[in-house]
Amino acid sequence: MPDNDSIDPTEVARPSSSRRDPEWLRARLDDWLPTVTGSPATITRLEIPSANGMSSETIVLDAAWEDTDHRLVVRVAPTPDSDPVFPTYDLDRQFRLIEHVASTTDVPLPTLYWSEPDPRPLGAPFFLMGRVDGVIPPDVMPYTFGSWLTEVSDDDRRTVAGTTIETLAMIHSAPVPEELLDLPGPGETPLRAHVRRLREFYAWASQGRAGSPLIERGFSWVDEHLPVESDPVLTWGDARIGNIIYQDLSPVAILDWEMAAHGPRELDVAWLIFLHRFFQDLAEMAGLPGLPEFLRRDDVADAYARSSGHEPRDLDFYITYAALIHAVVMYRIQSRAIHFGQAEEPVDTDDMILHRATLEAMLAGAYWAGVR
């Protein structure tokens, strides 16, 4: 594991500050809004949240047109000089994916307004959606360190887990929008295509840098343990509670669709389980109790089977693969932090992976024996 004094686990996912000037944004949106509303529009408030994303950027906006106030969120693709986490950002595709899910399921989603693929108005593509009130389990500090989720009762947390899993099953019921997804190439299965794209992302992230032997060993493990796949569905991709707005313990808005894909539903089920384990392990590293009874592996699998009629298979594989996906993302985030002088280059590149010990234990088949 990395030296705990060198990495603050609550800061690893700290979003970067915006590189866009609020007054410039306001002026540009003042010019752009009337072109889509078809009438005069006034921006009454514009704010860039301090906890902004390392991928697409979020702008909070209040505007009025046709004598009606609108509470909006603008999602903007990152600027090239921000050294983005991912190599490409297709926000118009995200907009159309959300639109597709909204029109074919009862998944709770923000109201969509407009997508602007032309980069000229704000320097990058963007889209607007309605702002939804509620609470989100925080990443910084992680919700397992103390949050509204640790303060509610055990029964309430079971309700949160249950309604979340029901919503995940609902996402998987959407017709697959093949025109909006990267489909397998000749001779590929959806899972093999997913692994290929992860390899391509890692190759891009490690270009010009020393790679991670642990990540490369993880890819070898995946190749050796690929299971027989269940039927592919539309996967959300970033299926975690930190991407959900809750009211009264139930999801009211599912956010962040940039990792959506065509693949086995177990990809999402495993990601939900693993991301909680990631935050739970961080809490235990810090000497905190966290939430060991929340989103437990078998509980999630059973609840998903009840909601969807499909019993998740091969979760040992899919949760380990989720840990590998997260390792590649963490490697990229740490590379980015080193680039901006926010972190030092480690002697051992595997120390760029905060959950190094977890991934090592999973590859060795020893992780779950140590879980309380």
Rank of each mutant, 00 (worst) to 15 (best):
D231P: 03
A239M: 08
D238R: 06
E229C: 01
H225F: 03
W221S: 13
W236E: 11
F219T: 07
I245N: 07
W236P: 10
D238A: 05
W221Y: 14
G242A: 15
S230C: 05
D223N: 11
N243V: 09
D238I: 08
D223W: 02
G237R: 08
T235D: 00
W221E: 14
I241P: 14
L249G: 09
R240Y: 13
V233I: 04
T235A: 01
P227F: 05
I245G: 07
F219I: 08
S220Y: 04
G218H: 05
G242L: 13
E229L: 00
G242S: 15
V228N: 08
S250P: 04
E229A: 01
W221V: 11
V233K: 00
F219W: 12
H225V: 01
L226P: 03
L226K: 03
W221D: 15
I245P: 07
I241R: 14
Q247C: 06
P232R: 01
P232Q: 02
S220H: 11
L234Y: 02
S230P: 11
L226S: 03
L226D: 07
I245W: 11
E229V: 00
W221G: 13
P227H: 08
D223K: 03
L234A: 04
D223L: 02
S220F: 04
L249M: 14
D238K: 07
V228R: 12
P227D: 09
I245S: 08
D223V: 02
L234M: 03
Q247D: 09
Y246H: 11
R240Q: 15
G237Q: 12
I244K: 10
H225G: 04
V222T: 15
S250G: 12
Y246N: 09
F219H: 09
S250I: 03
F219R: 11
V233W: 00
S230I: 02
Q247K: 13
V222L: 06
Y246Q: 08
E224N: 12
E229M: 00
G242I: 14
D238W: 12
G242T: 15
V228C: 06
G218L: 05
L226E: 06
G218D: 09
V233G: 01
D238F: 11
L249P: 10
R240C: 10
W236F: 13
W221C: 13
A239D: 10
S250K: 12
L226M: 07
T235Q: 01
R240V: 06
D238V: 08
N243S: 14
I241T: 15
P227G: 11
F219N: 07
V222Q: 07
G237W: 14
D223G: 10
I244G: 10
E229H: 00
